[in-house]
Design a protein around this nucleic acid. Structure first.
Lengths: 241, 241
DNA sequence: CCTCGTATAATTGTATACAACCTTGCCATT
DNA sequence: AATGGCAAGGTTGTATACAATTATACGAGG
């Protein structure tokens, strides 16, 4: 619930605060700062060559994005993601990506559809070659295109938030070639449903795509990475029908 | 996507920043600061008797909550909500409140269920008396209970965000007695489905509840309040099946 | 040897000073 | 009279100084 439709990007890469914010977000998501690690204002400031003020403002934003937790008068700590959190996010995303696909079916532009096709074609190529990094990149981009295509700044922004939030986990678990191929196949089906103008089908496929992604994560050892267990079985149970 | 499961509330009411944040949020939501109004750091600071630093930090948070837009080196402006935004929010909420009701069916505690029943009973009373303010209050509380009952900090927080965001609009449009009664009837049906353990039905009813709420807003002049029109007809079209 | 308390250090919270940028209005030039 | 440029005022961006709070370490007492 944040700054959508903001042609002056608030996370302005030209202001110090914006640069600190982006840098810290990237470092947290990439794993440079680990869970429960403490972030100290002066240390970060010195590392980036800025004073405490922009760092503090960036901290406040990171907190609202859920990446750190600030305990008053104590410090800022990188928040952890529990297995339960991941499950909840995928349940929510399943519904919202479905909605997004449904809306996009009517709203998508020719250019966006073409980029989708290109994306899928390219992903096929990299899947054959076993280029996992490129696969992940294309996967991200596919969803970004979908978010843009739904023509709802609010939905787009919400989905981007969730998507970014699980990137930390995905990097560790989605990096199998078999899932990469399956995922791209699902992308193709979604794209074709949109292309055919079948909004209902597009929604169902997008729902299912998220459930499959989650189930795959569970299979590939989500529990081993995060100590806690999903409270009830492994089935995603996110279907809306 | 913000600070869930935070026992030290980040919007700490004991820190100046937290107080400024809460005060400004309330003032924006209540309409004291109108759309596109500029908020100046020194003016706000003097009004609340604090310096610019806590005000600036509060601004950054308000921006991430979507309540103001900060244009670098220019100023902070209260953001407007378009009719399209409202429609999008209700589409999203329809799905997520449905999910929430479905999860709550398994997770709700006896105390929460009792508070729900009490809430509905009280709302019946106030509906008869025509107490619109109390009705609105109870309506808010009903949804809060539901959010708590789903046992997902993430979903709870997301729904609270959206709910708070449309409060500005709702205050102006939901204040009709007939809708109040209908809404409470729908609350009762949702509650009874949860009580009966019928998760599927609870989800459907909660979906429908949001669609009805939105349709009512459209009927009661959402367009007149916000200059723009919903891009396609008036039907909510938020059903997931 | 352990525990509690106090003092000191470290860190965050707030205020203020200074710099950079944008806006505005006046004046000169055409 | 219209326009362009320049200067002055105001607002935000950043840095730093000071206050308040918390963590740590050391020593005294048991």
């Amino acid at each position: 619930m944040t700054n959508y439709d903001n042609k002056y990007d608030a996370n302005d890469k030209y202001s110090l605060r914006g640069r600190v914010f982006q840098k810290l977000r990237e470092d947290i998501l990439s794993g440079k700062y680990k869970e429960h690690e403490e972030l100290k204002e002066v240390a970060i400031g010195e590392e980036l060559g800025v004073s405490r003020t922009p760092v503090r403002e960036a901290f406040r934003q990171l907190e609202l994005e859920g990446l750190i937790q600030i305990i008053p008068n104590k410090g800022a700590y990188v928040t952890g993601i529990t297995a339960k959190d991941v499950k909840d996010i995928y349940m929510i995303r399943s519904l919202l990506e479905g909605l997004c696909a449904r809306l996009a079916t009517d709203k998508i532009t020719k250019e966006q559809l073409e980029e989708m096709e290109e994306n899928i074609y390219l992903a096929d190529f990299h899947a054959q070659k076993g280029h996992l990094d490129q696969m992940a990149e294309l996967d991200n981009r596919f969803h970004d295109i979908l978010y843009e295509a739904c023509d709802s700044k609010l939905l787009e922004h919400t989905l981007r938030d969730f998507h970014r939030y699980v990137l930390r986990v995905r990097q560790k678990t989605l990096a199998t070639n078999t899932r990469g191929r399956a995922s791209n196949d699902e992308h193709r089906q979604i794209m074709e449903a949109i292309k055919a103008g079948d909004a209902e089908l597009a929604e169902k496929l997008a729902n299912r795509h998220m459930i499959n992604a989650y189930d795959n994560m569970v299979k590939n050892g989500l529990k081993e990475i995060y100590g806690e267990t999903t409270e009830e079985g492994t089935q995603a149970d996110t279907g809306s029908k």
